[in-house]
Every structure is written in C-alpha cells, then in structure tokens.
C-alpha cells in the first residue's frame, strides 16, 4: 500500500524509488497495534506517519554541488518536488479521517526535526558527544511525538533508542560502501578538523572507529531497555539480533577490512 502511494510514474523516471525504512515501519506498526484504532484507520495512520518520514528523508538527499548536466538537474528538481508531494499526501490522508490532532502532532514533529537537523548541519561542535546527541534527537522526535500522542509511554524511550541505533548502523553500512557519508564527515570535521566533502581512507577509518564505539554503547543500552520491557523484548529481541547484532557488525567490519 505504501509502495503504491509512493509511485508517481513521472517522478520515478528520474529519481530512485524512495527508501522505506523497514525498521521504522515495524516499530510504528507495533505502536499502532496498541493504539486501539479501527483497521482501515490504522493502515492510513501508519501510512501517514511513514509518509512524513519519507518526505523528510527525501529532502535530505538534495545535493549542494553545482550541477552542469540536464539529468542531475532534473533529479534535483524532482527530489525537491517528491518530498513536497509525499508531505502533502500525509496531510491529505489524515484530513480525510478528520484527524486534526494527529495532523497537529505530526506538523509539530516536522518543525522540531528541522530545527534539530539545522542544528546538526550548522553547528561546529568542539567535542563529539553533542554530535551524537543531536543525531539521536533527530531520530527520536517523530517516534516520541507519536508515542505521546497515543499515550504509549513504554514506546517513547524504546522507539527513540531503536531509531538511533538504526541510524548509526545505516551510517556505518553506508560508510563501508562509500567513505564519507554526511555523518562520517561530521565526526571527522569535529574530531580531526577536516573540512570538505571527501575524506581520506585514514580519516574515514578514524571516523568509523568512533562510530563503532558509539554503536557498541548504544547496543548495551538497547539490551538494557529490552530487559526492562518484557512485552517489547518479545517483539524485538529476535529482530534486533538478526538485523543489528554485534555479530553482524563484526562481520561487516571483517568484510570491509578485507
């Protein structure tokens, strides 16, 4: 259903199909299962929340560089418009359900997320800790607001942490494929005073070591949270181990090293 909503024939001729973060989908699905909503409404609510996330993620893809060919120009233009299109769809969908309160919650979340993103992007941190705090804030806002909206207090800290972990691992995975993701650049610029978009192999390796130490710490916290919430433990432990277990990280590291 989400895939069909995201399909716009002309857009997809020029931009990649939007990435649907399955971990987020799984968490929001689990939350809404407990929100006592009628089936169709639950489906549309889940769709709306995911559309917000996808719209925000799509706008993160806008490049900063000068463009000198028609294909890249079209791609950038349509990436801007795709984000706007997905964003307008969440509002349209919730308006049909006359869900004024959730529209307000999500619009507040979008504002807070853009505040946090601007902070992450613009602030020149002198230490590394606030970089990760800022990233956690960006990842936490939507799930926290939705949990508060439905009174699902258990999910607030768990969802925030799960999404943070998810983001760290996604950054790590991308960093293996292409050295120099936005996150690695931020770590490098904070720790190593590196300016510019490209990192040397040595700089990227140093940034990854820092990232790995934060992943290890976040994993420990995640385990503690799952121990505290037995109902979530049942739902997520297996998935968590399967997708993101430390074993997985070790394997990725080995594959990277060669």
């Amino acid at each position: 259903m989400l895939q069909s909503r995201l399909s716009h024939s002309y857009l997809l001729r020029f931009i990649d199909f939007p990435v649907i973060d399955e971990e987020k989908l799984y968490v929001f699905y689990g939350m809404l299962e407990q929100a006592k909503l009628e089936h169709k409404r639950k489906q549309d609510t889940l769709l709306s929340i995911m559309l917000v996330q996808i719209a925000l993620d799509t706008h993160d893809l806008i490049s900063l560089e000068e463009i000198d060919n028609e294909g890249d120009r079209k791609n950038r233009q349509l990436t801007v418009l795709a984000g706007d299109y997905f964003s307008s769809m969440y509002y349209h969908l919730l308006s049909k359900w006359e869900d004024n309160e959730l529209i307000r919650t999500l619009s507040e979340a979008i504002q807070e997320i853009n505040e946090a993103k601007m902070s992450f992007y613009q602030t020149e941190y002198s230490t590394i800790e606030p970089v990760f705090d800022n990233l956690k804030e960006i990842e936490s806002i939507l799930v926290r607001k939705v949990a508060e909206h439905y009174g699902l207090t258990n999910w607030k800290s768990f969802g925030s942490h799960y999404f943070y972990m998810n983001r760290l691992l996604t950054e790590r995975k991308q960093g293996i494929i292409q050295s120099g993701t936005f996150m690695l650049q931020k770590i490098a610029s904070t720790l190593l005073s590196v300016k510019g978009a490209k990192l040397s192999t040595n700089q990227a390796s140093k940034a990854k070591i820092v990232l790995d130490s934060y992943i290890a710490y976040a994993k420990k916290e995640m385990d503690q949270l799952l121990q505290q919430h037995s109902e979530l433990h049942q739902l997520f432990q297996e998935r968590f181990e399967y997708n993101w277990g430390m074993k997985g990280i070790q394997e990725k590291k080995m594959a990277e090293e060669g």
Partner: peptide, 13 residues
C-alpha cells in the same frame, strides 16, 4: 540548498 530545504519544510509545517 540544504538550509533552503529545511527552512521550507519548517515553514510549511
């Protein structure tokens, strides 16, 4: 561009 995207999204919301 990035500042423009975040600003537009913020104002819209």
């Amino acid at each position: 561009n990035r500042v423009a995207m975040y600003t537009g999204d913020y104002i819209f919301a």
